[in-house]
Amino acid sequence: MLHIKCPHCGLRSQNEFAYGGDATVKRPELNKEVSDKEWDTFVYLRKSPRGKHLEFWHHISGCRQWFKVERDTVTHEIFKTLKPNEDN
């Protein structure tokens, strides 16, 4: 079971959180012309990297905040956790 540092609550066990997918995906802006390919990539296509992965987690049984986790998909090492608006 992972030990995840919520940027608001600190270290908690994985069973307080829900996984939320790739955090590098950016939703196309509203009311913008989007090509089929671009939209298809946004909705369906996800990389499945071996190694570092930036992903969203949701502190669902805690503060209910979404945040970013940089995790190694092989070793499960967590390098850092960030608020959604933080880059470092």
Binding site: A18, G20, R27, F56, H58, I60, R64, Q65, W66, P84, N85
Partner: peptide
Amino acid sequence: LSHLEYYLQIVWP
């Protein structure tokens, strides 16, 4: 609820 929180916190803060 999670869906709404996702859009409010991440997509349209």
